[in-house]
């Protein structure tokens, strides 16, 4: 038996919008810890890890660990039928091949049940080791989205370099090149507007902008994005989900031949 009630149902809607274009189908895992997902894109270049902790739900019942294979496009279609203020409850049972999404209006005067078929998905679960990163950049998520969009109109790849001076985003394409530098900038009144750079060592890595632009679909979930870089590791682009957990996108770098 599975019953997860989320007062702020819009969070789940936003999560789906953030990942459905990157990953078409995935197993959602439900355990005492929370509702989670780990999936790779079809090219196996990027990986998304989602965690919504059990404490963040208004009601969380998960009698035993359950994995639900879901087509994310279909789930997104169903969640789009929930109103922006609706409370969403996810219901499932062992041994059935469906999951039910229940939408309740704030006033409790409209209750909808959407039943969706589950599917068998044979997915690989990868172990993500804890790592020390050479540089960690925290910046406004809207600023990062703007940079990725702007650079995506010029080139296909972005070189992200962190030095004492700041974080530099560089691209080159047929029409020319672009270079954007963001310096550390702390705002006491509005910490979410700050750009904070923690650097142990300078680092410079190249990534496909197509993926970065896909990650920025999570911008609505958090005002701040954290970008963790190390020369021997995939970049981690993390959006915290208020008091509930996170979406982390991992992207393998492009390396000079």
């Amino acid at each position: 038996m599975l019953e997860l009630r989320l007062i702020q149902g819009s969070l789940l809607k936003k999560v789906l919008e953030a990942i459905k274009d990157l990953v078409t189908e995935a197993n959602f895992d439900c355990s005492a810890t929370g509702f989670s997902l780990q999936a790779m894109d079809s090219s196996h270049v990027a990986l998304v890890a989602l965690l919504l902790r059990s404490e963040g739900f208004d009601h969380y019942r998960c009698d035993r660990n359950l994995s639900m294979g879901i087509n994310l496009n279909n789930m997104s279609k169903m969640l789009r039928c929930a109103g922006p203020e609706d409370i969403i409850t996810i219901k499932g049972d062992d041994g059935t091949d469906t999951v039910t999404f229940m939408f309740e209006s704030q006033k409790q005067d409209k209750i909808s049940d959407f039943e969706m078929k589950l599917m068998d998905i044979d997915s690989e679960h990868l172990g993500i080791p804890d790592a020390e990163y050479q540089a960690i950049v925290r910046m406004p998520s809207a600023e990062f989205a703007r940079i990725c969009k702007d650079l995506g109109s010029i080139g296909d790849t972005v070189v992200i370099s962190v030095t004492k001076e700041g974080v530099k985003f560089f691209t080159r394409g047929d029409v020319g090149s672009a270079n954007i530098v963001c310096r550390q900038n702390t705002s006491v009144d509005k910490p979410e507007d700050s750009t904070v750079i923690e650097m142990n060592e300078p680092v410079s890595l190249t990534f496909a902008l197509r993926y970065m632009n896909s990650f920025t679909k999570a911008t609505t979930l958090s005002e701040v994005v954290t970008i963790s870089l190390s020369s021997e590791l995939p970049v981690v682009v993390e959006y915290k989900i208020a008091e509930m957990g996170y979406i982390r996108f991992y992207l393998a770098p492009k390396i000079e031949d």
């Binding site: 790779m40 270049v45 690989e124 172990g127 993500i128 991992y250 393998a252 390396i255």
Partner: peptide, 14 residues
Amino acid sequence: DTRQFEIKTYFSKK
């Protein structure tokens, strides 16, 4: 030229 690596190059199978 740059080569795109797969994520599995870095993270092992659980």
